[in-house]
Amino acid sequence: EADPRLIESLSQMLSMGFSDEGGWLTRLLQTKNYDIGAALDTIQY
Results as ranks from 00 to 15, higher is better:
33 N>T: 06
31 T>M: 15
8 E>P: 05
21 E>V: 10
33 N>R: 08
11 S>V: 12
17 G>V: 02
30 Q>M: 11
17 G>F: 03
10 L>C: 03
40 L>P: 00
29 L>M: 04
1 E>W: 11
44 Q>M: 14
6 L>E: 05
45 Y>I: 15
32 K>I: 11
37 G>S: 15
25 L>M: 04
28 L>W: 03
16 M>Q: 05
27 R>D: 10
44 Q>L: 14
16 M>K: 06
29 L>N: 01
24 W>K: 04
24 W>N: 03
13 M>T: 00
41 D>Q: 15
7 I>F: 10
20 D>N: 12
14 L>V: 08
26 T>S: 11
9 S>H: 05
15 S>L: 09
15 S>C: 09
23 G>D: 05
19 S>K: 12
19 S>W: 08
22 G>C: 09
38 A>S: 10
27 R>W: 09
17 G>Y: 01
19 S>M: 08
41 D>L: 15
18 F>Y: 12
9 S>D: 00
10 L>A: 00
6 L>F: 08
40 L>Y: 07
26 T>K: 05
43 I>V: 06
26 T>W: 01
14 L>W: 07
15 S>G: 15
43 I>H: 02
16 M>N: 03
13 M>I: 07
4 P>E: 12
27 R>K: 13
27 R>H: 15
37 G>I: 14
1 E>I: 13
10 L>W: 03
9 S>F: 11
7 I>Y: 13
25 L>D: 01
14 L>P: 00
44 Q>E: 12
6 L>V: 05
42 T>N: 10
11 S>A: 15
32 K>W: 06
6 L>Y: 09
11 S>W: 08
23 G>E: 06
39 A>T: 12
40 L>N: 03
30 Q>K: 13
6 L>I: 06
38 A>Q: 11
11 S>Q: 14
16 M>V: 04
37 G>E: 13
8 E>H: 13
7 I>K: 12
19 S>Y: 09
29 L>C: 03
19 S>Q: 11
15 S>K: 14
24 W>R: 04
32 K>M: 15
45 Y>C: 14
15 S>F: 09
4 P>N: 09
41 D>T: 11
21 E>N: 12
35 D>H: 08
7 I>C: 09
20 D>Q: 02
1 E>Y: 13
22 G>R: 08
14 L>M: 13
34 Y>R: 00
30 Q>V: 15
43 I>N: 03
13 M>K: 01
29 L>R: 00
2 A>W: 14
43 I>L: 13
34 Y>Q: 02
36 I>H: 03
16 M>T: 02
30 Q>P: 01
40 L>C: 07
14 L>T: 09
26 T>V: 06
27 R>C: 09
43 I>R: 03
4 P>H: 12
27 R>S: 13
16 M>P: 00
21 E>G: 06
8 E>T: 11
22 G>Q: 05
44 Q>A: 10
12 Q>V: 15
40 L>W: 06
8 E>M: 10
31 T>C: 12
2 A>N: 14
19 S>R: 11
10 L>R: 06
29 L>A: 01
9 S>E: 03
10 L>T: 01
19 S>D: 10
13 M>S: 00
39 A>F: 04
18 F>N: 00
21 E>Y: 09
27 R>T: 14
1 E>K: 09
30 Q>S: 10
33 N>Y: 07
17 G>N: 03
42 T>I: 12
9 S>T: 11
8 E>I: 13
33 N>E: 10
35 D>M: 03
41 D>W: 12
32 K>A: 11
6 L>T: 03
13 M>L: 12
13 M>W: 04
20 D>I: 03
18 F>C: 06
10 L>Y: 05
12 Q>C: 12
5 R>F: 07
25 L>W: 02
27 R>V: 13
7 I>R: 10
5 R>G: 05
12 Q>P: 01
22 G>H: 08
33 N>H: 05
33 N>S: 06
28 L>E: 02
26 T>D: 04
31 T>I: 13
23 G>F: 08
15 S>E: 14
1 E>S: 14
2 A>F: 13
39 A>P: 02
33 N>V: 06
23 G>K: 06
26 T>N: 03
18 F>W: 09
28 L>K: 00
39 A>C: 08
41 D>K: 15
17 G>C: 06
3 D>Q: 04
11 S>M: 10
28 L>C: 07
4 P>I: 11
36 I>G: 01
23 G>Y: 06
17 G>M: 04
26 T>P: 01
31 T>Y: 13
35 D>F: 04
39 A>Y: 03
2 A>Y: 12
31 T>S: 15
21 E>H: 08
13 M>G: 01
39 A>G: 01
39 A>N: 01
42 T>F: 15
39 A>V: 15
28 L>F: 04
16 M>W: 14
21 E>T: 07
37 G>W: 15
1 E>P: 11
20 D>S: 02
10 L>S: 01
31 T>G: 12
20 D>A: 02
27 R>I: 13
23 G>L: 07
41 D>Y: 14
36 I>W: 08
11 S>H: 08
3 D>N: 11
29 L>H: 03
31 T>A: 13
23 G>M: 05
9 S>G: 07
26 T>A: 07
2 A>L: 14
34 Y>S: 04
29 L>E: 03
21 E>I: 12
35 D>I: 07
37 G>R: 14
42 T>H: 15
4 P>T: 11
36 I>V: 11
14 L>G: 05
8 E>Y: 12
34 Y>T: 02
42 T>G: 09
16 M>E: 04
25 L>Y: 00
4 P>Y: 13
38 A>P: 03
8 E>W: 12
38 A>W: 08
39 A>I: 11
4 P>R: 11
27 R>P: 03
3 D>P: 07
21 E>D: 13
40 L>F: 07
18 F>M: 04
2 A>V: 14
33 N>D: 08
36 I>Q: 04
29 L>Q: 01
44 Q>V: 12
23 G>H: 07
2 A>Q: 11
35 D>Q: 06
12 Q>N: 09
12 Q>F: 13
22 G>V: 01
6 L>A: 06
34 Y>G: 06
43 I>A: 04
22 G>M: 07
24 W>Y: 08
32 K>R: 09
12 Q>D: 04
45 Y>Q: 14
36 I>M: 06
21 E>M: 09
33 N>F: 09
45 Y>G: 12
41 D>P: 03
36 I>K: 03
6 L>K: 04
14 L>A: 09
8 E>N: 11
41 D>C: 10
40 L>A: 02
14 L>S: 07
16 M>S: 04
